[in-house]
Amino acid sequence: MLTVDFDRLGLEPGDRVLDMGAGAGRHSFEMYRRGADVIAFDMDADELSHVKDLFVAMEQAGEVPVGAEADVKQGDALALPFGDGEFDRIVAAEVLEHIPADIQAIEELVRVLRPGGTLAVSVPRWFPEVVNWKLSVDYHNVEGGHIRIYTKEELVDKVTKRGLEFVGVDYAHGLHSPYWWIKCAVGVDNDEHPLAKGYHKLLVWEIMKQPTVLRLAGKVLDPLIGKSMVLYFHKPETA
Results as ranks from 00 to 15, higher is better:
65 P>W: 03
19 D>H: 00
221 L>Y: 04
29 F>R: 03
6 F>D: 12
221 L>R: 02
94 E>Q: 11
70 A>M: 01
190 N>S: 06
139 Y>P: 12
219 K>S: 06
197 K>Y: 05
137 V>H: 04
174 G>H: 14
13 P>Y: 05
170 D>T: 07
208 M>A: 09
41 F>M: 15
236 P>W: 11
200 H>C: 15
229 M>A: 09
76 D>R: 12
31 M>P: 01
29 F>S: 03
165 E>L: 08
111 R>Y: 03
114 R>W: 12
87 F>V: 13
45 A>H: 08
92 A>W: 01
145 G>E: 13
201 K>F: 00
65 P>M: 04
155 L>T: 07
28 S>N: 01
71 D>W: 14
220 V>F: 14
34 R>F: 05
13 P>D: 13
41 F>T: 10
195 L>R: 08
222 D>Y: 08
114 R>E: 08
227 K>R: 07
221 L>G: 15
1 M>L: 10
124 P>A: 07
226 G>D: 02
137 V>K: 06
173 H>Y: 09
209 K>L: 08
214 L>Y: 00
66 V>W: 06
196 A>R: 13
177 S>R: 07
188 V>P: 10
94 E>L: 02
99 I>G: 13
42 D>N: 02
37 D>G: 11
97 E>K: 15
220 V>L: 08
31 M>Q: 00
99 I>N: 11
215 R>C: 08
78 L>A: 04
93 A>Q: 06
129 E>Q: 11
93 A>E: 06
13 P>K: 09
232 Y>E: 13
164 L>H: 01
87 F>H: 09
222 D>F: 07
204 V>R: 11
11 L>P: 04
81 P>C: 01
193 H>E: 00
107 E>R: 15
153 E>Q: 05
72 V>I: 11
16 R>W: 08
81 P>G: 01
163 G>C: 10
4 V>M: 12
35 G>N: 00
222 D>G: 03
162 R>G: 04
226 G>T: 01
74 Q>N: 13
171 Y>H: 06
189 D>S: 08
140 H>T: 15
22 A>M: 01
39 I>T: 14
224 L>H: 13
168 G>A: 04
172 A>H: 10
66 V>I: 09
178 P>E: 05
214 L>A: 14
113 L>E: 06
